[in-house]
Write a protein that binds this DNA or RNA. Structure first.
Lengths: 328, 328
DNA sequence: AATATTATCGTAAACGATTCCGAATGTCAA
DNA sequence: TTGACATTCGGAATCGTTTACGATAATATT
């Protein structure tokens, strides 16, 4: 391993001069600087991140927090975009695990590794470990959830749902059911949008039309939909919590002879690729993962680079309604 | 931040003693050791990874290399399992990006961060950067590809394909087409298994039955399948490179009035969850991502812990044939 | 010409942990 | 009592880098 010391000896200068030259500090002799940089490159020098971190307590490394499994496409593609942004900003991405022991202490883990910030993609937002992290001095950005006084990036859950309701209403639906995902900021926002537009449009919403389901759980959604269809006063359209569960439900229903959209209309959420590859193509709302990732980094880099002037913001990113073939 | 020095002052011992006590070194006073550990815990001590890495040149951090996008389920679930294993072994997982600059130097990046090892999940295996890494002294495990003299974990591509061919043959198919994915060790192995069993079973394979396609590319596969079906002497069954492309092809075909398996039988590969949620359920081969991850870690931990006695191995992990409804 | 100012660079002290080596103490046998 | 030996601990160097500070030389000011 080539060290600054080695370069210093070759160039006949001090270690400090080499460090300054390589870091582009001012007050340095021009030609000498370029000479040092050249020989450093020739010698195959690369800085030792551990030493640099130890001295500066900056690691150029961000933590990424994801408690669930990654295998639904919305999360994995969001993750891909975050990775791209991290690369562009010169950061590495390290997964924040439970730190070996079961008592999930994300804060300590982040401190141990001197992480410059943490991106929370998915977590149990009521858990003490997450709140500890979010309220700490470590720059933290939450995706798809909101804490007061924290940096957050969310989809426009409320207005997107408003668009969806207007869309299906425009296509003639008056009896619209709504399946929630897990309780939380996302479901709350979407439900608010749902109720708001229903009220505006004079759509009556029986209490049994609003059900509690789960994200990414197809059989659960199918069960609820079948249940809804057996009501005397049954809905003509069901809004699902996400594409994954909607797709699954669609197939489970079709296997039972229930056709979409002839017998029932369905709407998904997320806009995963597969939703547009199937027949019928899903009517859904595509989240803009590229923009979400960009916003996450604009927040976190600001928090890192100017911690004293940074004020936490909550950013909303708009997506796009995708008209498929599952709404009659 | 609490340092060893702080603990030493509180306990009235030297820094060296605290370090030894915390690391469980021998030749230490029993009760004093436990007293030190207790106060360290009470003071909220956690070690500084950067300092430790600088001194020991071990980081307890593994690199994970993935050049493509993550959004197909096989890779993302494999990744989930790797994450679980890393947690269990006390390692963190850091993504190896291109290091900011475009000239992809994974080796230097790994050295910079003092990574203890690197797991290559997907990459351009012919690129100089990967080969440089694989042939370096950094413990490296390759998944789904083989280099001579390197640690590799692959699925049983050859025998799995043999099983698949036997299966469809047992169900009466004599005219079987094969769509390859990208060129490489995986495709080569599968094709070898395909040819071998076809020969054994006396199945004639016209040259136009073996096509070059792409992994994870549904429209491409659909195109090829349609093409195959227009042959005078058309196949009755097509083996696709993976579930994702197979699913997509299936829908594209059905949209054009071609029914599966009535008009054509299809077989996928990977065994992603969605393949079993749809109608018809896919006949496919499920890769054992849990076992793959376990093997990866058994190799990499051995390479890290005993670099002198470690000899590179190539491990094959068996999966399981999943009988669905896409083979008549 | 003497002094003030600036531009450059080197010295050395950190950052927090590990670990070699030697010192101090205790134990035991002769 | 003395010497040999084991046990336990502290001192200090070290890992590679950054950076405050002072020293030096070059230039400008009067």
């Amino acid at each position: 391993m080539v060290r600054l010391k080695d370069i210093a000896e070759v160039c006949g200068v001090s270690v400090a001069t080499v460090s300054r030259a390589l870091n582009g500090l001012t007050n340095e002799n021009r030609e000498r600087t370029s000479f040092i940089c050249q020989t450093a490159h020739d010698m195959g020098y690369y800085p030792n991140a551990a030493a640099r971190t130890l001295k500066t307590s900056r690691s150029n490394n961000l933590g990424i927090l994801y408690e669930d499994r990654m295998n639904h496409e919305y999360f994995s593609s969001l993750f891909d975009e975050l990775r791209r942004e991290a690369d562009a900003h010169g950061y590495d991405l390290t997964f924040l695990g439970h730190g070996g022991n079961t008592e999930t202490n994300y804060y300590e883990h982040a401190r141990q590794r001197s992480l410059d910030g943490v991106i929370v993609v998915q977590a149990d937002y009521d858990a003490a470990g997450i709140i500890r992290l979010a309220t700490s001095s470590i720059p933290t950005v939450i995706v798809d959830h909101t804490y007061d006084g924290c940096d957050c990036v969310t989809s426009d859950n409320r207005t997107s749902m408003e668009q969806i309701v207007r869309h299906v209403h425009a296509r003639g639906h008056q009896r619209i059911a709504f399946i929630q995902g897990e309780k939380g900021a996302v479901s709350r926002e979407r439900l608010a949008g749902f109720y708001k537009v229903c009220a505006e449009l004079g759509i009556r919403v029986p209490v049994e039309f609003v059900r509690e389901g789960h994200f990414h759980n197809p059989s659960d959604s199918a069960e609820i939909i079948r249940d809804l269809m057996q009501l005397d006063d049954r809905p003509t359209c069901v809004l699902c919590p996400d594409d994954y569960s909607c797709l699954g439900a669609l197939w489970l229903l079709e296997a039972q002879g229930i056709r979409v959209p002839e017998d029932i209309s369905l709407v998904g959420y997320d806009g995963i690729r597969m939703s547009q590859m199937i027949t019928p193509r899903l009517t859904t709302y595509r989240q803009d993962t590229v923009q979400i990732a960009k916003k996450v980094f604009s927040l976190i880099t600001d928090a890192i680079d100017s911690p004293e002037t940074h004020i936490p913001k909550q950013i909303t990113v708009s997506g796009m309604l995708v008209e498929g073939e599952t709404v009659r």
